[in-house]
Every structure is written in C-alpha cells, then in structure tokens.
Amino acid sequence: MVGASRRFDFSASHRYWRDEWSQQENERVFGKCTSPYGHGHNYTLDVTIRGTPDPATGMIMNMVDLKALVNEVLDAFDHKHLNEDTPYFKDLIPTTENIVRVLWRLIAPRLPAGVALAHLRLYEMRDLWADYDGSDEASFSRSYVFSAAHRLHSAQLSDAENQQLYGKCNNPNGHGHNYTLEVTVDGAVDPQTGMVIDMVALDGQVRGVIDTLDHKHIDREVPWFAARASTGEHIVLYLWELLAARLEGQLRHLRLWETQNNVFEYSGER
C-alpha cells in the first residue's frame, strides 16, 4: 500500500457554547471561544489516502479527482458559520477534533473502490491542529515557544574532544535558541466539550514545564542537566519526563525544534 497526500484550505467561523451550561461555566471551559457572534480561522486540511498504484497510470487516485471530491465536501464549510450554516454542528461543538471527525465521515465514503482514507490533519492555526484516522480516538497538538541558552559540553570528554565534537556549540559562554515544542495528546473526544483535553489545562501544564527552561541558561540553572549535555535529545527527554507525569497517560508525542534544521522527537517507550 502506498500513501499520497494533498492539502486543502477553507475559511469558516464558529462558536463554542453549551446551552445547558451557565455562562460562567461556558466561559470557564471555552474562554474567548464563547463570543456570541463567533470567531474565525483559515483552516488547512491535509488529506492522506492509501492504496495500490494503478499499473497503467501509476497513481493510487488521480489527484485532480481527489481535489474535486474534497472541495465538494469543503464547499459546505467554506465561508460559513459552522454552527449556523451547516447541519453538522447544531448539537455538536465545532472544535478542531469534532470538525476533523465530521470531515472524515463525509470524505471517506466518497473515495473510489480500492482507495482508503488513511489520515486527516486539520490545522485551525499554525500552532494548533487535530489528527484523525477513523478510530474511536483523536489526537490534538499544540506548539509552544521558549527561549534558552546552553553550551554543548560533556564532562566525560576532554576540552579538546568537546571542541572537536561540538564546535561552535562548545563556546564557554554558551549560545541560544528560540525553541518550538510541539505537544501531541490523544484520547477519546469528550462528548460535552468536543475536546480530547481541556486546552486551558493543557496550556497551563505545558507552560509550567517549559517555564523551567524559558529564559534560562539550561546547563547552569536547571539541575537535571548538571551531569548531562544539553543536547536536543536530552532536552526532549527532560520535557517528556515532566509532561508525562502531568498529563496522566494522554501524552503521545513531543517534537522539539531547536532550529529550522534540527528537530528532535520522542514518544516514550511504547
């Protein structure tokens, strides 16, 4: 089986609100998303299909046909208020997780025989997205930025060996980065909130962890690195250790961008 993906865009507005909840409870759970007039996003949808390439065309599916099929679905969402102008969110809160699951139900049956919908990723913003593969669970991802200084240096190596191995990164006074951490959690979508996890709670837990690194010299101010080189590999392990304990089994994956060219990932031992 071979996979192929295509990206689509649409624009829409939505509102988070439960009529049976008080205004105070709605605002506590959904924050600014409770605005009575709604708010909007430029959504990006990545559609991945799988199948066996046709021996004559060499394609799983003609991308022109996939484009037409998905755009037909998205036409009902594009430049619409999802709560008011579509039938799908009258009783379902149009969270990122719920929207991507609705899109799955609409796209999957339209695909031709021999072509399967493998994965959808819906970006609500560049730093917030949801993934769905047709299972009972979904995943939700959000990215966070922090700034820190560090020096790559191993106490197990001589000064000459450190200089040879790490080069400029072994500068005695250190250097710094704007790090981006992508946090992915998974689980069942709560039928009340439409979310895999309370986003406000997630932000609080992640910020509580990355604040231990933010605007710090990692080697000099974070005890965990006293005997460890502050490589991207070690930093992502440090972040996992703290976040896994806080997120109660929902943490699925971490991706740490040190620069645009250097990325480090960890998904635990599973």
Results as ranks from 00 to 15, higher is better:
V70T: 03
L128C: 07
S267Y: 12
Y16I: 07
W224P: 02
Q163S: 14
W224A: 09
V185A: 05
R255T: 11
E233G: 09
R18Q: 13
F10C: 08
N170C: 08
L152A: 04
Y88K: 04
M1P: 07
T52M: 12
L256I: 01
V236E: 01
F146L: 06
H175A: 01
V189M: 12
M63D: 11
M125C: 14
D136M: 08
R126E: 15
I210E: 07
T34K: 02
Q163R: 14
L111S: 06
V2M: 13
E72T: 10
N62C: 08
D75F: 11
E221Y: 02
D136E: 15
G208W: 01
A201E: 12
E258M: 03
V185F: 06
D219Q: 03
D46P: 04
D133N: 14
V64I: 14
L66S: 11
A4C: 13
F30M: 07
A227H: 12
T184K: 11
G187A: 13
G167Q: 04
L165H: 02
T259K: 09
N173S: 06
A76F: 07
E124C: 05
V183E: 04
D203Q: 04
V29Q: 15
P55W: 02
K67F: 08
D131E: 15
W21Q: 02
H175E: 04
D46V: 14
Y238H: 03
L242I: 00
N71K: 14
R15L: 08
M195A: 04
G40P: 09
A12K: 03
I218M: 06
E221R: 03
L165S: 01
M1K: 09
N71C: 12
P36S: 11
H153L: 06
E84N: 14
A244H: 13
